Structure formats: C-alpha cells, structure tokens
Simulated assay, not measured.
Amino acid sequence: MIYSVSMGKLFDSIDDTMKAWIEAQPLWFVATAPLSGDGHVNMSPRGHDTFSVLGDRRVGWVDYTGSGVETIAHLRENGRICLMFVSFDSRPRIVRLYGHGSVSLPGEAAFDEVVALHPEHPSTRAVITVEVTRISDSCGWGVPVMEVTDERDLLRLQAEKKGVEGMADYRAEKNTRSIDGLPGLPA
C-alpha cells in the first residue's frame, strides 16, 4: 500500500520496481548519529557494486575500509540509520529507508550472505544490514541532473598496495574508535 505524505509517499515495502530503482543508483548516502547530543552526526556517501535489497523490508551492503568508522560505531551503540538514494538522471526522485542497522564481520552469516552477492573487494571490512521500518520518497526536483562517468578505483588500488596485513594494520589504527570515542571494529 502507498500513502501520500505531502509531495512524497510512504510505502509498506520495497517492491520489485523500487528495488530495481534503488539498485540502479550509483551513489547513495548513509546517515547515523550517536545517542549523545554532543556527538557528531555522520553522513557518508557510498557507491560501487555494494548494495542489495535482501527482502521487502531488509537491505544490506558491503562496507569498505575507510578513514573512519562512524557508521559502524553508531550502529553498535544504537542501531539508528537512514539511507538516502537520489536520482541524478532526468527523472527526479529521492527514496529514504529508515530502520535499525546491524554490523556483521567475516565469518558471520549476514556477512557471508551479502558479500556473496557482490564482486570481491580487498577493502571489505564488514557488512551492514538494515531492518527497514519506514520507506518514503519525495520529488527530488531540487537535485541537479548529473552524469556518472566512471567508478573510482582508488580503494581497490590502495587495498592491493597495502595487502591483507597492511589493511588489518590500517583498520587497527583508524577503525577501532569513532571520532567521539565510541567502539568501532575490534583491533
């Protein structure tokens, strides 16, 4: 069922049409926040072939090693998350998925499930899955029309240069605590 909300709509589930649209977006955003009012809200862009709709109210993605660990730390603390998908082509649309996110590491069932759906990447550090509690869209009329020319290969090149041990060292140095001191990945 679809419910009208101002110019946007609320949806009961992610149907096949929305799933295809979401999975076709080359760029999407993840927003999380700590419980502390003094903590930093975080929004991160994501791309590459990492995202999957896993069910009509469940999604997940392969999380690559980055210079920070905010999403993981916030999810471990409170689970709150919002994903935003934006159309930059000629047909405007914004879809937001709100829910409760979980972090899975290598060897855990959800990690194996999601990683198997995507190309192998040497920067893979975790998998995030989200049980979606609210699905909404809005017009996107204020979003510019842009053209994607290519994916960046810098993450892969950096990870290949560092190697498995170097990536583990990097994560131990940069990904064990959030900028607010919350626990991230195990050292």
Rank of each mutant, 00 (worst) to 15 (best):
Y3G: 02
S4W: 01
V5Y: 09
V5P: 09
S6D: 13
S6C: 13
I14E: 02
D16E: 14
T17L: 15
T17H: 09
M18E: 05
K19M: 08
A20S: 14
I22C: 03
E23D: 03
E23W: 06
E23Y: 09
Q25M: 04
P26Y: 09
F29R: 03
V30S: 12
A31N: 09
T32E: 10
A33N: 10
P34W: 04
S36D: 15
S36W: 01
G37H: 11
G37P: 09
G37E: 08
N42I: 04
P45K: 06
G47V: 00
H48Q: 15
H48F: 12
G55R: 07
D56A: 11
R58H: 12
V59N: 01
V59H: 04
G60N: 07
V69H: 02
E70F: 03
T71V: 10
I72C: 15
H74N: 14
R76Q: 13
N78V: 03
G79I: 07
R80K: 14
C82Q: 12
L83M: 04
L83E: 05
M84G: 04
M84E: 02
F85M: 05
V86L: 12
V86F: 00
F88E: 08
D89N: 00
D89G: 13
S90V: 14
R93N: 03
R93H: 12
I94A: 10
R96K: 02
R96I: 06
G99S: 03
H100Q: 11
H100R: 08
S102H: 13
S102R: 08
S102Q: 13
V103D: 01
V103N: 01
S104G: 05
P106N: 09
P106M: 05
G107I: 05
A109K: 10
D112N: 07
D112L: 08
D112H: 04
V114Q: 03
V114D: 02
L117Q: 12
E120W: 06
E120V: 10
H121D: 13
P122F: 12
S123P: 11
T124P: 10
T124E: 09
A126T: 01
V127Q: 05
I128L: 00
I128V: 14
I128R: 01
T129K: 00
V130N: 04
E131R: 08
E131F: 05
V132S: 05
T133F: 00
R134C: 06
D137S: 10
S138H: 06
S138N: 13
S138W: 07
C139T: 04
C139G: 05
C139Q: 12
G142I: 09
P144L: 09
V145S: 13
V145L: 13
V145Y: 11
E147N: 08
V148F: 10
T149M: 03
R152I: 10
R152M: 14
L157P: 01
Q158F: 08
K161D: 08
K162P: 03
K162D: 11
G166T: 05
M167K: 10
A168S: 04
A168V: 11
D169Q: 14
R171F: 12
R171S: 13
K174N: 15
T176N: 07
S178M: 06
L182A: 02
L182I: 01
G184Y: 02
L185R: 02
A187H: 13
